[in-house]
């Protein structure tokens, strides 16, 4: 048994300098990079509302949240770099469409209620997905996830608190919240990925302890957590099949449209093009700035020699 297999079997962490199978390294880089890309692309849908936030307190909260997402992206790219990846190369893979990010960010934000609903549902689903990753076998990723989950949890409560406040407001605001929940519910359920039967990478990822629970287990967990919160809020979740199954001790829910998920993941969602175009534009517009910084640093290094 190799040191790597032994570490996995004993639930110990794999660290950057340890030997690891090439497949494990590649899978980890892909997973961490996709997560980092999701944080960076995920700044866009809510970022669009910072300049329009209706109170200065909400503006500060939203700005701080979007800044946290940039911070998460930064730790995650750093974690990928411990495996030999390069941030610039990963960014190119993102803007050339060779690496993916979470499907949820390909939906548009149409009202300020979306800021609250994204906090509640999207960050809530992200937490369900990510808490088990705090026990990922790869040490730097697992440690980054502990901090990220803490912050995500804070964002989720802020989002929910915004919705509670809006629900105590005018009829127009309550309608705005319900309309937003109607749009985001199904895409949030899709964040857990395809059903287990169609998830080819799950078995290997579970064996390597990169992943701890299947997509369907996590989806169920999210629904069980969220239904009572929806009731407390006073909104209806747009699923006629939704009911508590006393026998199983879980909520029964309808099947998300996985064909839509497949379309959105393969680039056909409503906002895919704009999201990537914005990221590409920032990268291109910033190229001369990065070159200038590198040239200045090289001159300083020359002087120091």
């Amino acid at each position: 048994m190799s040191a790597f297999d032994e570490a996995i079997a004993r639930d110990q962490r794999v660290e950057p300098a340890d030997d690891m199978p090439e497949g494990y390294r590649k899978t980890m880089i892909r997973q961490i990079a996709q997560h980092a890309h999701s944080e960076i692309i995920g700044m866009q849908p809510e970022g669009e509302w910072i300049t329009r936030a209706p109170t200065l307190r909400r503006k500060a909260i939203l700005l701080a949240k979007v800044q946290d997402e940039a911070g998460h992206g930064l730790y995650l790219y750093s974690a990928a770099e411990t495996l030999g990846a390069d941030r610039g190369d990963l960014t190119r893979r993102l803007i050339e469409g060779r690496q993916k990010y979470s499907s949820i960010f390909n939906y548009p934000t149409l009202s300020f209620a979306d800021v609250g609903v994204i906090g509640w549902l999207v960050d809530g689903a992200a937490i369900c997905n990510q808490v088990p990753l705090c026990r990922s076998s790869y040490g730097p990723y697992a440690r980054a996830m502990i901090r990220i989950c803490k912050e995500e949890s804070f964002h989720q409560r802020q989002g929910y608190e915004l919705l509670l406040t809006m629900m105590r407001g005018t009829d127009a605001q309550r309608a705005m919240v319900q309309e937003s929940v109607d749009r985001w519910w199904w895409p949030s359920l899709m964040m857990f990925g395809p059903p287990d039967a169609d998830s080819p990478n799950t078995a290997q990822s579970m064996a390597w302890k990169i992943k701890r629970h299947t997509n369907d287990e996590l989806r169920q967990r999210f629904v069980d957590m969220t239904v009572p919160q929806a009731e407390a809020l006073g909104v209806t979740l747009p699923d006629p099949e939704l009911r508590f199954d006393a026998e199983r001790g879980h909520y029964h829910f309808g099947q998300p449209d996985f064909e839509e998920l497949r379309r959105v993941i393969s680039g056909g969602g409503p906002m895919n093009e704009q999201r990537i175009a914005r990221r590409r534009q920032a990268d291109e517009d910033g190229a001369w700035v990065r070159e200038a910084a590198a040239a200045h640093a090289a001159k300083l290094a020359e002087v120091a020699r």
Partner: peptide, 25 residues
């Protein structure tokens, strides 16, 4: 705030948001 998601590098994304947040405060 208009620069959010448009900065030349991730470190500047954080710095500009941070400055915007301080000034807002």
């Amino acid at each position: 705030q208009e620069w959010v998601t448009r900065a030349p590098e991730l470190e500047d994304e954080l710095a500009l948001a941070n400055i915007a947040l301080d000034l807002l405060g």
